[in-house]
Design a protein around this nucleic acid. Structure first.
Length: 798
RNA sequence: GCCCUCGUGGCGGAAAUGGAAUACGCGCAACGCUUAGGACGUUGUCCCGCAAGGGUUGCAGGUUCAAAUCCUGCCGAGGGCACCA
């Protein structure tokens, strides 16, 4: 009998499905485990081998947890709104909904062919009105709680296509489609006040078990810094310029202020004789795109307004400039210029001949800015203090004299939540001339996306929905007068913000989720996804979950207990898989040639789970060979009744290794351990009994579910290998009785000897000193020290 | 520029806590089985050396009885942020 995965795999897949093997049970008596993968975007390209990598790995975890007696929820769904499908529709004329349905079917077939143990009864789809009803409901709640608001903000605008572009559509400052330079256009947008949650999003990271690099990326993205806002009075005026700084210790070094061109005070501070020059500068910088202003990072330019401010600490007169290197949206859009101690200010001062005054000792300011901490000089009563002390004292002084306030600043900005596209959730708002923006009443949800023929954005930059007057024109829910529907749709993130909650209760038509069910399943115990989602998706969904907690929908404030990330799978040539390179690998082909088990095991074996790795088709063959050997070994060893003692020891050691490696996401070494064990079995065929084979099959089952199920039944078992309890290893059997003891001289390995594991220091040193090799080494030299590491080695220092 | 991760054979990569560097797989070589090829099996495979022996974890130092692992500096790769005051 030969190993033919193509025959056995579909057979068992049907068997598991027919018998509802992987259904999660609400409120079971067993402890729950919620294992989650990021639900895929069903693109036209079909499943990527990268999906297979992380799904197989988490599937193995889910299967093991079931065997350990947990009630496991391992769900799947579709994140199906978004641009790729809309663009595909524009190109081909196939409606996004039709394309989505087709793609979902294909993905489903592919995922099922891998033998992943998803609970398909909980399948969700973000484009299903029954689902996005609740996405819209969340928006209404945000609006009700003043966390959703409208604001005029600049968006990326392609003057040639006359459409607004998402950041993803802007490549190197140009329109992805026509390569025209993108400019900025002010448009009214819906925004979410995520900044209100900034502190909680940082602090609550202490409660969860994410990989450290993930935590630090979240923190960096939020970018909290503590400082002080200082008021600089405008000379001969009642106006004040507020600047934020984290370096109050350098305040005596201020030789100018610079305002962003967009700063509200800028225009009012221009002296008459400088009007035309300054206005010209402001206009020029506004014509620049955000890309030019930030990415080019070239010369820092600016222009003097003709006005002066007063430095509150020493009453010095400092000139006020306008410069577009100052970020308008951060810290109030104004900075104090301390050329001696800030690189950008140094550059700016050099260019325009501003004074560079040293106030912190430690560097050579004639060459470059000294940005580190040091001791204060030229700073009046604060001379001699360390930077740290000085910041404290100066902050106090500023507060006491009412010219400064301690302040916390964030890099995080409020979240632009509207898109001028068709394929997304309609924002459930009606605009009324007399009542303003009015939420659609809850009973009228969902606001269904109308079925249209044209999805192209309009000339004005509005969403394609704006052209459907029949849909747009409606009644104001407040006064009953004429109203117009909001035509912007929500971004792709909207549906993925909360989908993991819906899995707990996917068919509920009355509520987003039943509170008891959420209470039972949440939080997600283990969430794995791509590194590219560790900032945005993770942060956004944590924010929304916290909000749902605040309004009493869910029982805790953090959605994910543990978060891990997988590395990308590159093509064999080391590049990203892409149609244009012609190096895309279709998992279907691997399944057809080698079977799903080989694909799964290979992707876990190929390297460390969190690292990016190139595909290697030879490596796939190696894994196939290994499974073939598992097959042959099982067939050959059924006649042996009992296993020899060394075999029993080996299988228990394997048991321990697999147990440990799976918990710490080391799938590659787990598979390697299986290979080693199989090699051992082939060398000791006579000593391998059925009991050993069975235990090995159970351990292997989470990784390669089909072959193990087939062999399990071949051995005469009537039930499923996947319903076996996870075996426990005997720690007594795992211990080595005889070890290879290492003998070092001056830290170099000079000899090895087999001894019993619990050899004492005295026995070990006696043994060592009696060895010929060692005697020769030591010769006449004096032994200074003997270091003994029990069960490991001895080191003679001479 | 800042932050994070990492640098080990021809290749992908192993080495909890500092304690045998190179597990496992690929590739390669020889042999066996085969008419042959493939598949399979057995053996070998870090470098120098006939050997005894010596050397080796990007480079240069340091700590230690002992360093791939800890510390300092440099070089290189990947990722994130990017004029954030």
């Amino acid at each position: 009998m030969k190993y033919k995965p193509q025959e056995i795999e579909p057979k068992w897949q049907r068997f598991w499905e027919k018998n509802d093997f992987y259904k999660a049970e609400d409120f079971s008596d067993n402890p729950k485990k919620y294992i989650l993968i990021e639900f895929p975007y069903p693109s036209g390209q079909g499943l990527h081998v990268g999906h297979c990598r992380s799904y197989s790995a988490l599937d193995a975890i889910a299967r093991k947890k079931r065997m350990e007696g947990f009630n496991v929820l391992f769900p799947i769904g579709w994140d199906a709104f978004g641009l790729p499908t809309e663009n595909y529709a524009i190109k081909t004329g196939i409606h996004p909904q039709v394309a989505t349905e087709k793609n979902v079917l294909n993905y489903k077939r592919q995922l099922k062919s891998l033998g992943l143990s998803f609970d398909w009864s909980r399948e969700i789809n973000t484009t299903d009105p029954k689902y996005y009803k609740w996405t819209q409901w969340i928006f209404l709640k945000l609006f009700e709680n003043d966390l959703a608001y409208q604001a005029e903000i600049p968006i990326n605008w392609c003057p040639s296509c006359r459409i607004g572009l998402a950041n993803e559509e802007v490549i190197d400052g140009r329109c992805e489609r026509c390569r025209t330079k993108v400019s900025q256009k002010e448009l009214k947008q819906w925004m979410l006040r995520i900044t209100k949650y900034a502190d909680r999003l940082i602090e609550d990271l202490d409660k969860v078990d994410y990989w450290e690099n993930i935590k630090s990326q979240q923190k960096d993205w939020i970018g909290r810094s503590y400082g002080v806002e200082i008021n600089f009075k405008v000379e001969n005026s009642k106006k004040e310029v507020k600047v934020f700084t984290t370096r109050a210790d350098t305040i005596f070094g201020v030789t100018a202020l610079v305002l962003a061109p967009e700063h509200p005070l800028t225009k009012t501070l221009i002296a008459k004789d400088r009007l035309s020059e300054v206005k010209k500068y402001i206009k020029e910088s506004q014509d620049k795109t955000e890309f030019e202003r930030t990415k080019l990072e070239k010369e820092k330019t600016g222009v003097f307004t003709g006005s002066y401010c007063i430095n509150p600490i020493n009453n010095e007169k400092v000139p006020v400039w306008v410069g577009d290197y100052v970020v308008a949206t951060y810290g109030g859009g104004a900075v104090m210029v301390v050329p001696a101690h800030d690189k950008r200010d140094y550059e700016f001062a050099k260019r325009y001949g501003l004074e560079i005054r040293e106030v912190v000792k430690g560097g050579d300011i004639s060459k470059q800015a000294f940005v580190e901490s040091g001791t204060l000089v030229n700073s009046g009563q604060f001379n001699g203090l360390s930077s740290k002390k000085a910041i404290e004292k100066i902050n106090k002084w500023l507060e006491k004299n009412n010219v400064g306030t301690k302040k916390v600043q964030y890099k995080l900005r409020d979240w632009v939540f509207s898109r001028q596209h068709y394929w997304g959730e309609p924002i459930p708002i009606v605009h009324c001339q007399s009542c303003g923006a009015i939420p659609v009443p809850e009973k009228d949800l969902p606001v269904k996306l109308p079925y249209v023929e044209k999805y192209k954005p309009t000339e004005t930059g509005e969403s394609p929905l704006a052209a459907i007057t029949k849909w747009v024109d409606t009644k104001c829910p407040e006064c009953g007068g004429p109203g117009k529907r909001e035509t912007d749709t929500m971004p792709n993130w909207a549906g993925s913000n909360w989908y993991y909650v819906r899995y707990c209760d996917p068919k509920n038509e009355k509520e987003l989720v039943d509170k008891k069910k959420a209470g039972y399943w949440m939080p997600v115990d283990w969430y794995n996804g791509g590194m590219e989602h560790t900032t945005l998706h993770l942060l956004y969904s944590r924010f929304i979950y916290k909000f749902l907690f605040d309004i009493g929908v869910v029982p805790q404030s953090e959605p994910y207990q543990k978060r891990t990330s997988h590395g990308m799978v590159l093509a064999e040539d080391g590049r990203k898989m892409s149609k244009s390179f012609g190096n895309v690998l279709n998992p279907d082909d691997i399944v057809r040639e080698y079977g799903a088990d080989t694909l799964r095991a290979y992707e876990m074996f190929m390297g460390p789970f969190d690292q990016t790795i190139s595909w290697n088709s030879q490596g796939v063959k190696g894994v196939y060979r290994f499974l073939d050997r598992v097959w042959n070994l099982t067939l050959e060893c059924t006649k042996n009744k009992n296993s020899a003692k060394k075999t029993v020891k080996a299988i228990h050691k394997l048991n321990k290794k697999i147990q440990e490696d799976m918990e710490v996401v080391k799938f590659n070494t787990a598979i390697a351990a299986f290979m080693e064990f199989i090699n051992f079995c082939f060398e000791n065929k006579k000593d391998i009994g059925k009991d050993t084979i069975q235990r090995m099959l159970i351990l292997l089952a989470p990784f390669v579910p089909h072959i193990t199920e087939e062999l399990w039944h071949y051995l005469g078992n009537k039930d499923s290998v996947h319903n076996q309890p996870w075996p426990k290893y005997d720690s007594g059997l795992v211990k080595e009785e005889i070890i290879t003891f290492i003998i070092q001289v001056n830290g170099r390995v000079r000899d090895k000897v087999e001894v019993k594991a619990d050899i004492s220091e005295k026995e070990a040193s006696d043994l060592t000193l009696s060895r010929e090799k060692i005697k020769k080494r030591i010769g006449e030299k004096e032994i200074k020290k003997i270091i003994f590491v029990p069960g490991k080695l001895i080191n003679i220092v001479i």
